[in-house]
């Protein structure tokens, strides 16, 4: 069973729909016990960092997430919350990835919205994926490139499209909305 972390963020149902299309059963839950029991955990998200982090802290879910030993996939805001700190509402985050989250400088359209390809990719999530493949992004804040970066993308500046540290994986883009390429990346995560 795949557990999808429920919190006050949008887009959660879309992740479940994508898993269903791939033939995987999932539950949407914020119960720490269910999260501990699941084979894998997906930490989705569209929303605002400050209120999302507040929701996690209030329920002690921050500690649960950090203590997970199974494969965890953060998506979009989920990935940003797995970093150290976000400029969005000056939010202290989970600190799983050694990177900070910053607002894009206003030299081009913000949010970075639409399909973009990779500058670099590495690791299990990108088996069968090439640099020319496009995935769907929508975000105004970006995670800086660090030792945890597993894929990069360029918009205004090069930033982390994906990160990994041990059993924690994450994508800034939305694999659940990225057509066949996104399905392949999700499938790669599900097969870890």
């Amino acid at each position: 069973m795949i557990a999808i972390l429920k919190y006050n963020a949008g887009n959660i149902k879309s992740v479940q729909n994508a898993l269903t299309r791939l033939g995987y059963e999932s539950i949407i839950t914020d119960d720490p016990e269910e999260l501990m029991k699941a084979e894998k955990v997906i930490f989705p998200g569209v929303g605002e960092a400050g209120s999302a982090m507040h929701y996690l802290l209030e329920r002690g879910l921050d500690k649960t997430i950090i203590s997970l030993k199974k494969p965890v996939l953060g998506i979009c805001l989920g990935m940003q919350l797995m970093c150290r700190h976000s400029e969005e509402a000056d939010t202290r985050c989970l600190g799983i990835f050694d990177a900070d989250v910053k607002l894009f400088p206003p030299v081009d359209k913000i949010p970075h919205m639409g399909w973009n390809n990779f500058l670099t990719i590495k690791g299990e999530l990108y088996k069968g994926i090439s640099l020319e493949d496009d995935v769907y992004f929508v975000h105004s804040y970006y995670s800086e490139i660090s030792s945890c970066t597993s894929a990069t993308c360029d918009y205004i500046l090069p930033f982390s499209a994906s990160m990994q540290s041990g059993n924690f994986y994450a994508t800034q883009f939305h694999p659940e909305k990225s057509a066949g390429v996104g399905e392949k990346i999700l499938q790669n995560f599900l097969e870890i």
């Binding site: 149902k13 879309s14 729909n17 994508a18 269903t20 299309r21 769907y136 929508v138 939305h174 659940e176 909305k177 990225s178 057509a179 066949g180 996104g182 399905e183």
Partner: peptide, 8 residues
Amino acid sequence: IAAEINIP
């Protein structure tokens, strides 16, 4: 629609 399509 959301159940069936994989684009935004």
